[in-house]
Amino acid sequence: MESILYAENLTRVFSRKGQQELVAVDHVSFELFPGECLGIIGESGSGKSTIAGLVTRLIDPTEGRIVLEGRDITTLRGKELRDIYKTIQLVFQTPAESFDPRCSLGDGIGESLVNSGMRRSEAGREVERLLDECGLDKSFAGKYPFEVSGGQCQRAAIARALAIKPKVLVCDEATSSLDVTIQKDIMELLMELRKKKGNDLSILFICHDIALVQQFCDRVLVMCHGRVAEEGIPDDIVRNPGNEYTKRLIESIL
């Protein structure tokens, strides 16, 4: 099977005047296959979120190549770059901050539909369907981000990400700011979506909680200082870590 997202030798160096260069992501390569959920775990500063930024082109790579659906997107600009967001979407850690505070959730979700050419009235109905798909009542379309709870806002953020039927969903610590019971609800929602969409939806699941990755992902990359320390099936990695760093990480879980 051909991968839907392929990263080859992805590297990002942050440099500031007078300061040492920081290699946030160092020659990382991975493939994401259709219908698969690939987890990326690691400690703060290991480069997980930079990878999310790189594959969605929110951050430019210093070196390496990103191939989405067979097309090299590494250097795309302008309209061509905007077009990749029909295929890849991102769900952020803090849902309330990812919505415009002056727009209702419905407007936020509908914006991408309207931008992709859908009529406003049609977009309104589609927003209601998406909210329903993500477990929210249609009345949420008229609410503002500050009027809803963190879990409800994250459901709306997932609805927004799914609006233009992307093939790849990048979840960057999408449940980390939520309470465990809400986290469970969101994970159940993601699992339901995976089941429903089959090979039409692949997920890059960035998270620092190994237990969650073990429950949810088919494969996992363990990141350490910007590099891939280990890659494999979560159960195998948890039970037989092949790397000192992974071993330490698993042992330290309370």
Binding site: K184, R239, I253
Partner: peptide, 12 residues
């Protein structure tokens, strides 16, 4: 019970 069931547990 609900709170504890929601906590992801590592299967070692």
């Amino acid at each position: 019970k609900k709170l504890l069931a929601a906590v992801p547990v590592l299967r070692r």
